[in-house]
Amino acid sequence: MQTLVAYVENKPGVLNRVSSLARRLAINIDSLTVGPTENEEIARMTIVAHTDERGAHRLEASLEKLVDVLLAENISGRALLERDLALIKVAADQQNRPHLMELIKVFRARVVDVAPESLIIEVSGTVDKIDGLLEVLRPFGVLEMARTGRISMTRGSDLLRPPLLDIEVSAVESEVSKVNKHP
């Protein structure tokens, strides 16, 4: 499993380009999350892909070739903070409710909705933690579940902030028109 981060133009169609690219390279995506950054014109993606280092290199380099992708970087193997968030609706009656509450505490999850027959639990953390909670909830009856997929960030001073520069367009344009006028 490899984790990549991409900064992309925050506009329609870009997600399609990114997922279509991975499909074309025959790389399976485990999870892909996208949301705006502090600059609303730029969105950030975390892509978790089933591939090896070589595949990740190809994906990273190919992503960066897309016009709408500002940068792409394979951050696997670096010191990372990873988060996944889940909402789990679990069956709960009067009898097992105390037991459930115990478990929820152990996992540092929260109850965000209470109904006579069910609870909705919110949990965030690493994928392993959420998988662990899910396992212990199963016997109670998991009615529904929604997960965000992973978001990742490199720790500390390891900033994903290479300078982004404008592409030199006028030189290419004048060369094109020169050659086209006198091929």
Partner: peptide, 10 residues
């Protein structure tokens, strides 16, 4: 109407 492409990591 100058062409303007998204900025890139160079």
């Amino acid at each position: 109407c100058m062409p303007k492409l998204p900025p890139k990591r160079i």
